[in-house]
């Protein structure tokens, strides 16, 4: 079970969270302006990152808040977690430590 650091509550076990898929996808302001191809890109196309992946989590059985995380999909190490609206941090800047979510 992963140990995930909620930016609002701190380290909590994975069982308190739900996964929210890829982060930093912004719903187009005017979807009607998009052609089918562009809309399909937004709606369905996701990266399948091997390595550090920006993804959304929700502390569903805690504070209820969504937040973003950088997780290495090959090791499950979290390089960072950060609030919605904050820019994606540079994963190299925060030294990932084995076994911790920070």
């Amino acid at each position: 079970m992963l140990l995930i650091s909620c930016p609002y509550c701190g380290d909590r076990p994975e069982i308190e969270f739900t996964y929210g898929g890829q982060a930093h996808l912004v719903r187009p302001a005017d979807p009607s302006a998009l052609d089918d191809q562009q809309w399909a890109e937004y709606l369905y196309m996701r990266t399948n990152t091997k390595g550090v992946h920006a993804e959304r989590w929700r502390h569903a059985r805690g504070c209820g808040r969504f937040f973003n995380a950088l997780r290495d999909t090959t090791t499950d190490r979290f390089a960072a977690t950060y609030k919605i609206g904050a820019a994606r941090p540079d994963p190299a800047a925060s030294e990932p430590t084995p076994g911790t979510a920070r």
Binding site: G20, V26, R58, F66, I84
Partner: peptide
């Protein structure tokens, strides 16, 4: 409710 929270928190804060 989870879907509503998702849009409320992340798309239309």
């Amino acid at each position: 409710l989870a879907m509503m929270e998702d849009y409320r928190q992340t798309e239309w804060p």
